[in-house]
Design a protein around this nucleic acid. Structure first.
Length: 487
RNA sequence: GCCCCCGUCGUCUAGCGGCCUAGGACGCUGCCCUCUCACGGCAGUAGCGGCGGUUCGAAUCCGCUCGGGGGUACCA
């Protein structure tokens, strides 16, 4: 029997990091077992529906190479994969439950339900529907208060509803006793609870993998599977990703809750995948740097933790830096180009000169960034339009004031160079400024030059930087600051 | 309020009764390398929430307690 798992995001806004997290674990298992992974859109909430969300979900999962075998975009034997297009498939099951006496119509208004809950809370009893509508015809109900013309359908939860189930991550789990849950809304759409059960069964899903937040509604699903005469799937409730304050990760408190944020900030997709695999999970080998295939090969649900991990950006940054350093230089160049363009440093597409400059400079900055978005600051001195070049005032204050003589000496030493490369530049500089020249230590000598030419007190190695910059710009920047600042 | 889940360094984790005076990683601190910043190398810092049991022996099992989280919707 082949394993079939699914991820079921709701297109309600920016794709959520939890979708990628759950997808990764599903896929690790599916690929190991040779099963299928289904992408299903749970778009039954018309109020929160966002039009562009679906395309973004595809985009981000593709970016992460978390690919599905069946879905709304690629079809499959159980199409359609959008719940909004499956409305007809839910209705017969509702009718069956109604006919079997497992569900009933309810005409209560939202106001009445809210008042009822408030009153229950005041009395310190569990909140839940009071079954005012149960067993009544529409006509009988009309006479009572809080009547609404549009009816919903509710489950009739029996006293002996099963509350225990086996979770492949947690073992035996006790879940709370459910309320008479609405399964069909007044607008004719099913609620998540009905739709998920019907679709999971019809699509042959063998393992329901979802966030821990769903544990409390699992008994409703159990009941539905049983009532409809369907075999229950296996359940795996993943730990919830957390904000720093331990609350469930949210877009409001944490930029990392939005998947698009990672790409915008210059994280590498395989770094993010590796990091997500580290949250609530560890490989048997103890290795922390691993690929999807390595994770998949040894994947085991029982190794998934039950505690919700805090999403630690520091560690992700370190991992990203590791992967940046591992990139082939031309690959890094390709990934850097969009960031340099967004910073206004290069054209789109880049000129040959710009492309050559970036290619030559990449080896100098590869160990100097954790995120791709840090590249513009590192390469600004090289790529900026000459008349836009400015020296950071803090660097002027710190390294240039009082060192005009060093700049002048450096310019004089570089001026006659015929061959302009790292070796010759460094030779000229050292000859003029170190023991055979001004008698300075290299650190002392290079600081003002670095500030004047690179515009900052931090830069890639100096001789290499000057070699890339070229003689003309180097001398112009040195001369621009020599005169007025000599003490 | 009611119900459920969970509890090892600041963070991610290893541990599944003796191998633990608790291991690794990130972070942080110091040192080395060094033209700045990084990278790299080395060292250090810091934890089994608490209290009772069970046991010859508990981070590992049980109970209570405290703490955290989630659910409690015609949202998913």
């Amino acid at each position: 029997m082949t394993v079939r798992l699914r991820v079921a995001p709701s297109p309600t806004g920016d794709p959520h990091v939890g979708t990628a997290y759950v997808s990764l674990f599903c896929l690790a298992f599916v690929r190991q077992q040779g099963g299928q992974f289904v992408l299903r859109l749970e778009d039954t909430d018309r109020a929160r529906f966002r039009d562009d969300s679906e395309a973004q979900i595809y985009d981000m999962l593709h970016w992460l190479s978390l690919d599905w075998d069946e879905g709304p975009d690629k079809g499959g034997p159980y199409a359609p994969y959008r719940q909004s297009e499956r409305l007809d498939t839910y209705r017969p099951h509702v009718d069956k439950l109604l006919a079997d006496g497992r569900a009933y119509y309810c005409w209560c208004t939202p106001d009445r339900l809210q008042a009822m809950r408030e009153e229950q809370q005041k009395r310190k009893v569990p909140t839940g529907y009071d079954r005012l509508c149960y067993g009544k015809t529409r006509e009988e109900r009309t006479a009572l208060p809080g009547f609404s013309a549009a009816a919903v359908v509710r489950m009739l939860i029996p006293d002996d509803a099963p509350l225990t189930f086996t979770d492949v991550i947690r073992g035996e789990v006790n879940a709370p006793r459910p309320d008479d849950q609405v399964i069909l809304k007044a607008d004719g759409f099913p609620t998540y609870h009905l739709a998920v059960v019907v679709d999971d069964h019809l699509m042959g899903i063998t393992h329901v993998v979802r966030g821990e937040e769903w544990i409390s509604s699992t008994p409703k699903h159990l009941l539905l599977f049983d009532w409809l005469g369907w075999e229950r799937p296996a359940f795996a409730h993943m730990p919830l990703l957390r904000n720093t304050d331990k609350s469930k990760i949210s877009k409001r408190k944490n930029p990392a809750a939005r998947l698009t944020w990672f790409r915008e900030e210059g994280y590498l997709p395989h770094a993010l995948v590796n990091f997500l695999g580290l949250l609530g999970y560890s490989l048997p080998s103890g290795e922390e740097i691993f690929t999807f295939d390595e994770m998949s090969a040894s994947f085991d649900w029982t190794r998934v933790n039950t505690v919700g991990p805090v999403f630690d950006l520091d560690k992700l940054g370190w991992l990203n830096g590791h992967y940046v350093r591992e990139l082939a230089p031309d690959d890094l160049v390709r990934r850097l180009l969009p960031f340099l363009h967004d910073a206004g440093l290069i054209a789109e597409p880049p000129t040959d000169r710009q492309h050559a400059d970036v290619t030559a400079a990449v080896p100098l900055i590869q160990t100097r960034m954790a995120l791709l978005s840090e590249a513009p600051a590192l390469l600004r001195f090289l790529l900026v339009e000459e008349d836009s070049f400015v020296v950071d005032p803090a660097a002027v204050e710190k390294s240039i004031v009082g060192n005009g003589a060093v700049l002048a000496a450096a310019a004089d030493a570089l001026e006659p160079l015929e061959v302009w490369d790292t070796e010759h530049v460094q030779g000229a500089l050292d000859g003029a400024l170190l023991e055979d020249g001004m008698g300075l230590k290299r650190g002392k000598a290079y600081a003002p030059i670095r500030a004047a030419v690179c515009g900052s007190s931090i830069s890639p190695p100096l001789p290499e930087s000057l070699a890339l910059l070229g003689k003309e710009r180097t001398l112009r920047r040195l001369r621009a600051l020599t005169g007025e600042l000599v003490v």
